[in-house]
Design a protein around this nucleic acid. Structure first.
Lengths: 229, 229
DNA sequence: GTCTATATGTGGATAGAC
DNA sequence: GTCTATCCACATATAGAC
């Protein structure tokens, strides 16, 4: 029963969710206390326990709310690519676009950009609590992506494919995190973040070319022993 | 720095350093207490204060000890590449190899692999304390690398170059972190980590191809308004 | 140099009033 | 549903004995 005279139309629960998401993204899960969240959300600690029970469950709720539409979109796009290609290998660029695009496009809204930062930070967090949450919400669609990409790359041996998938994940994570590391090293040049479609095309240019590259022949089990220069 | 076979020949200070490095790499700076470090190093908390004064200074000492030879090697290789190429653009692959190689090669020793994990985790840590340490020890050589790579890539506009550098950093970080995210998504296929030279060549294949790619013409300030498909 | 003991602060969780 | 007050565990840092 919402009060029609309330100055804030948002509920206490929603305020906690959005404030926690922002603070976690800025400072990391472990460095944000429930006290600071409730202070910024104009609530108290008992409210967090009432709605979410624990701090971990609060993080999980944030991820589930955000990743549900993201995962649905990725799955829809991936399945569309696979259907279009039928029995032949799907185009690498389209597979990449289906998986990376929805995440990159989040950056076009302020709240989406915040979640992108949170998602990137948490995806490399060594804390088992954080890891289990991230893995749980992403594993299904990530598996679908990896399988589709594998079909798109029959020219790669398993080890090379494995390493390149790591590069894709790392690139995506780093761009989404947008942590200012590279900014310090470049002059005043424009950053393309205000146009997510251009940003996505730039990423696809880079990653597609990387996946298309023919592996350098090198010492491999059963292969020749001398690397080409 | 002598052999690590003697259990008690190491000094208390060295044991604290190496135990802290391992625990920080496994669980992250914020999740490791000085208590757990001193317990594992068979010392006590007062010893940490005696040798390093604070937890932050302990992390800084770890990084400075590890990055000093790493940075020297990177600078040596980068300068060698630049001298070889003279006034003409240096080869992209060689510039990449000079910067990425020394870090990747650390993975060939157990202690180097531990520091690789620590370095990767800390390079995306949002904590300002951690960030300032990482930036301080890496900024000089990273700047040298970015400048050299810029010279190697005259075919790229500033925004595209900027984004691709982020992809390089992200790829390097993710591979060095080796956090098990991708392992979950792949079957029993071999991981190439036992041969760091092959691993480095694989990364160079991918990243060099990505940097060489011609950018997709798209809507850019002063450019045509319709993107090619 | 190395230890015990402790000062001082902060964290998550919760009981119970309203 | 929302709050105040509090419990208890654990963090860093340090004082002072030996």
């Amino acid at each position: 029963m919402p009060a029609n005279s309330a100055p804030d139309s948002t509920s206490t629960r929603d305020r906690i969710l959005s404030v926690a998401e922002r603070l976690f993204a800025e400072r990391g899960y472990n460095k944000v206390s429930l006290r600071s969240i409730t202070a910024a959300a104009e609530a108290n600690m008992a409210a967090v326990h009432y709605y979410f029970r624990t701090k971990e469950a609060l993080l999980r709720a944030i991820f589930e709310a955000r990743t549900a539409p993201l995962t649905a979109e990725r799955q829809r796009l991936l399945h569309a690519v696979l259907e279009r290609s039928g029995d032949s290998p799907p185009p690498v660029r389209e597979v990449l676009a289906a998986f990376i695009g929805p995440g990159i496009r989040l950056a076009s809204t302020p709240s989406g950009a915040i979640f992108n930062q949170l998602s990137a930070i948490c995806s490399v967090d060594p804390d088992p609590t954080v890891r289990s949450i991230v893995f749980a919400v992403h594993d299904d669609v990530a598996q679908l992506f990896v399988d589709a990409l594998r079909r798109a790359c029959p020219h790669l041996d398993a080890a090379t494919f494995f390493l390149r998938v790591q590069c894709i994940f790392g690139s995506m994570m780093y761009v989404r995190a947008n942590n200012g590391r590279v900014d310090r090293l470049m002059p005043l040049e424009a950053q393309p973040r205000d146009d997510v479609d251009t940003l996505l095309e730039m990423m696809l240019d880079f990653l597609t070319a990387g996946m298309a590259a023919q592996p350098t022949p090198t010492a491999r089990p059963g292969g020749p022993s001398k690397a080409a220069q």
